[in-house]
Amino acid sequence: MSTVISIINLKGGVGKTTITVALAEFLAVEHHKRVLVIDLDPQTNSTVALIGEDEWKRRNEGGQTLYALFKDHIDDTYTFEMDKSIVRRTSNLFGGLDNLHLLPSSLDFVKIQDRLIYIWQTALIRPFDVLKNAVKNHLDDYDYVLIDCPPNLGIVTQNGLNISDWYLIPAIPDHLSTYGIPQIISSVKNFNRKKSSGEVQLLGVVASMYRSNVSRHNTTLRSLKMQAEQGELTRLFETKVPLASKAADAAEYAEGVNTLKQKYGNSGNSLYEAFQSLAEELITYVQDERS
């Protein structure tokens, strides 16, 4: 059985994509899991980080992105082919990882976002069922499916939630980045009423771009921990992903990267150690929730 997790925050620039890609790579390399990343964010950052800009352009021009899937349902056309659109060897690690796959996004998503509500008129399905119908026969090919959602709770994000078991909220531990957490939780609860089966649950909040010497970060973490203790949040992950210059380097699709330590750094308090710990925490919590 696959574990499907949507990664969501209403605010951009909180490390959502960095966490998505890093978790995918650590799960694939260190835990030997079969992983699929579904990039629903029109910014295509996860896509470019995993296959590079040249390969993304080729696939975008060939209609092998999720934009083509949603556009088909709006225009009543049949151009998208799931088997051809899944990229089956991704990441710049070791020249590509056979067990890390990708469903790529497209900048063209922006062109049709306002039209998505009309999908039911042409496709005769609910707008948030598009992705579910497309991937339902593929999910069990993977141990983990990680969905990089856009920074909103619109129809595209709802498509991700509709196939998810859990959702994860990365947030910089400051007021602006955590302000929308109650809204996310409330909106997902409302969305659960629309789902035909199961509910998507909050797996937890992950502190990202953390700086230990910033007092407001530590104050916010104490507040989030108290909310978790009071049952307002499922949990605050123990792992804190530090603010590090290596994060920008890791997001680049550079050739010749042969280890996770080389990509994420192996010095003290490094991204490597943080993401190693985060992946282990995530696996533990998923196992605990399933038992």
Rank of each mutant, 00 (worst) to 15 (best):
P150I: 12
V4L: 04
D114I: 03
E238T: 15
L131G: 03
N218P: 14
N269G: 08
D143I: 05
A24I: 13
W166V: 09
T178H: 15
L66R: 09
D98K: 09
I86N: 06
N152P: 15
D143P: 01
S105Y: 01
D76A: 15
K136I: 13
Y142R: 03
Q201K: 12
L97K: 03
L50C: 06
L278E: 02
V14Q: 04
E238C: 15
G198W: 03
Q43V: 01
Q183F: 15
Q230I: 11
T17R: 12
S6C: 13
S277L: 07
T44L: 03
R290C: 13
T3R: 06
G62T: 12
V135W: 05
D288H: 11
L271R: 09
M82H: 01
K57G: 00
T3I: 08
D98H: 07
N92R: 12
I51D: 08
N190R: 10
T157K: 10
K189T: 11
S270C: 11
R58M: 14
M82V: 11
W120I: 01
S277Y: 08
N213F: 15
T3G: 05
N269D: 10
T65V: 07
H138G: 09
N192T: 02
E289M: 13
T44S: 12
I283Q: 07
R59M: 07
Q64C: 05
A207P: 04
L202N: 10
I8R: 00
S212R: 02
L202P: 08
A279Q: 07
L103V: 00
K261T: 00
T65W: 05
H32N: 01
A228W: 05
S106H: 05
V214D: 11
A248M: 10
Y118W: 10
L176N: 15
H73A: 13
L202M: 03
K16I: 06
G62C: 09
A28W: 03
P173R: 12
I119Q: 04
I283G: 00
N99Q: 13
G63R: 06
D288L: 14
T284Q: 07
T178N: 15
L233Y: 12
S6G: 11
F80N: 08
S106C: 10
S105P: 05
V37H: 04
V35K: 07
G268I: 11
V14S: 03
D129E: 07
L124P: 12
L107T: 13
R115N: 00
N213I: 15
D141P: 07
L260T: 10
V37N: 08
I184S: 11
L260E: 00
V135N: 08
N99W: 03
L153P: 05
D129T: 02
I147M: 07
T219Y: 07
H73F: 12
H73S: 00
K132C: 05
S164W: 06
S186A: 13
S267V: 11
Q43M: 03
L27Y: 09
Y253F: 02
S91A: 08
F109L: 03
K240F: 10
V156I: 14
L146W: 01
L93T: 04
V257G: 04
V135H: 01
Y272A: 00
I38D: 07
Y118D: 07
V110C: 08
N9I: 14
Q276E: 01
L124C: 12
V188I: 14
K189C: 09
S196G: 15
K195L: 04
K246E: 11
S212C: 01
I184P: 10
D129R: 06
I19W: 06
D83A: 07
M1S: 09
